[in-house]
Amino acid sequence: MTETTYIFSPFDFGEVLHTKEEAVEFIAMVDKILDSFFNAKETPNEKMKKLLPYQIYDYLQQQAAKQRIALDDKEMFKNYLNQVKIFVQHIPVVTIEIPFLPTSNMLTNISNYLSIYLKRTILFDIVINKNLIAGAKLSYNGKYKDFSYRKKFDLELKKEAEAIIKTL
């Protein structure tokens, strides 16, 4: 029996997964669901409902419906989950260094902004660095750039300090 290959949109899962940490947790849960597939006590759907946060569970159900997955069909559902797992594992990651812990809403806004530009879902690997003052440092595909205000601040401060010292 040949396994069906499902086609995913580049924006899939961008609605529920914003960070690398969330993606890692999601994959770990999918692995647990796949492990319990042939457990007679509970169905895969029940296990999924039990393990996943409601928002993600709901989103996954919708996606499965779009792909016309019969949740009762264990083999089909298993095949689908495996492909979901592979898709999520391949979502690009942008490392972003910022001076504060972002709110969920802020994270969604930033993620959406970048997804639209890159025309696909992206995940943020967030690093908190309070020395940055404001702005962010970015790292993507082996490239690195400092867009924080720390750099600007240091340059301005140096000018001011030298001006003050000259008057001494």
Partner: peptide, 27 residues
């Protein structure tokens, strides 16, 4: 500065950074 910048300002400054990165072809 850290205390005076609001979360909204922070978000705005990050988005400015991303915009600058876009314009510089960082992505």
């Amino acid at each position: 500065i850290g205390q005076s910048i609001t979360p909204a300002d922070h978000e705005k400054l990050i988005l400015e950074g991303l915009e600058q990165a876009k314009q510089e072809g960082f992505f």
